[in-house]
Amino acid sequence: MQTSFPLGVTINGLPPIAAPIIPPGVVPPAAPSLGSPEQPQEPKPPTVIAQPSSVEALPASTPPARLPLLLAVVALAIVAAALVRTWMRRKAA
């Protein structure tokens, strides 16, 4: 099993590492100019002209259920009270 790392030496049966294309210390060439990106044109929003008699109110939304929220708040309060009680008993002992 070979474990050295110079260029041209195989490592664990892998093919040799190729020499770098650009030698160290040389500034690589600049990327080709791709030009300026095109500015996307924003579509104009459609103009809606409604007749005064055709306007309707939105339907009322249903309020969320309050029971699950109430149960979650009560459970959180019970857990917090139990933790505080445990912490206070430990400090007193």
Rank of each mutant, 00 (worst) to 15 (best):
P64G: 00
V26A: 02
L70I: 15
A19G: 07
P15T: 03
L67G: 00
R85V: 15
P32W: 02
A19H: 04
K44D: 06
I17Q: 07
T10P: 15
P63L: 00
A92M: 11
T62H: 01
P52C: 01
K44Q: 09
P45R: 04
A30H: 04
S54A: 08
L14Y: 05
V74R: 06
A77E: 12
M88Y: 06
P6T: 05
A30S: 06
P23S: 01
P43W: 04
P24F: 04
A18F: 07
V27D: 01
T10K: 10
T62Q: 06
P37S: 03
F5L: 15
K44A: 11
P15E: 02
V9C: 03
P15W: 01
V79M: 12
V27A: 07
V74S: 06
A72G: 14
Q41H: 12
A81M: 14
P59I: 01
S53L: 11
A50R: 11
K44G: 03
P45W: 00
T62Y: 01
I78E: 05
I22A: 05
S4C: 11
V79N: 08
E56H: 12
P40K: 04
P64M: 00
A77D: 09
E56G: 05
Q39G: 10
A60L: 07
P59G: 03
A60W: 02
E38Q: 14
Q2E: 10
P63A: 00
L14H: 12
A18Q: 11
L67H: 00
E38V: 15
T86R: 08
R66S: 02
N12K: 11
T62V: 05
T86L: 13
E56T: 14
V48K: 08
A81P: 14
A82V: 14
E38H: 12
L70T: 13
S61W: 03
G35L: 02
K91I: 14
P40C: 03
E42T: 13
L83H: 06
V27W: 02
R89C: 08
I21S: 04
M88K: 11
P45T: 01
S54Y: 06
V74H: 06
I22G: 04
L14S: 13
L7S: 06
L67P: 07
R90K: 12
G13M: 10
